[in-house]
């Protein structure tokens, strides 16, 4: 009995472990958000938005697609190569065409496409937080 009781402080500490772990790993701030972009920023077919990272694809100054800039391989932010008309990941060389479809490199998935709506002089993007 005495031996069992001697383990009580350890057991008490043990009960704190799971609540503490849940506290530490809580994904605070990892949530989707709406991002408004002024339409007058869409000066070319592909416009890069830095924060949060995405590309707005426009035709005749009308947005047709919004692509999340995170590479679907390891999550690096891809760049747009205007000459080759491709999105290229600078980390491991994954490449996507202008529609965001993966065409080369280690990635096996296309770029994530974000939903959006046009409101007068701005577009509002439902920016999603993806697990990397």
């Amino acid at each position: 009995m005495e031996k069992v009781l001697s383990y009580l402080p350890l057991a008490a500490l043990g009960t704190l472990f799971i609540p503490t772990l849940r506290f530490v790993i809580f994904p605070f701030g990892k949530r989707d958000k709406k991002v408004a972009i002024q339409r007058n920023r869409l000066i070319s077919k592909v416009t890069k938005i830095d924060n949060p990272p995405m590309f707005v694809i426009a035709e005749n100054e009308t947005p047709v697609k919004v692509l999340n800039s995170h590479c679907t391989h390891m999550g690096c932010v891809v760049n747009f190569d205007a000459n080759a008309k491709r999105f290229v990941c600078p980390c491991h060389g994954s490449q996507y065409n202008i529609d965001g479809i993966n065409i080369r490199g280690p990635t096996k998935k296309p770029l994530h496409s974000e939903s959006f709506k046009i409101e007068k002089d701005k577009i509002v993007v439902d920016y999603r937080f993806y697990d990397l």
Binding site: I25, G29, C76, D131, L132
Partner: peptide, 29 residues
């Protein structure tokens, strides 16, 4: 990019993927 890759790698590491929370925070932090 190295930070994102590290988080992504741990996230893809099967049963140990929860460890990525020890590195991952929101964009702001």
């Amino acid at each position: 990019s190295a930070g994102i890759i590290a988080i992504g790698m741990i996230h893809d590491f099967g049963p140990f993927s929860f460890l990525s929370h020890f590195l991952e925070s929101s964009r702001h932090y």
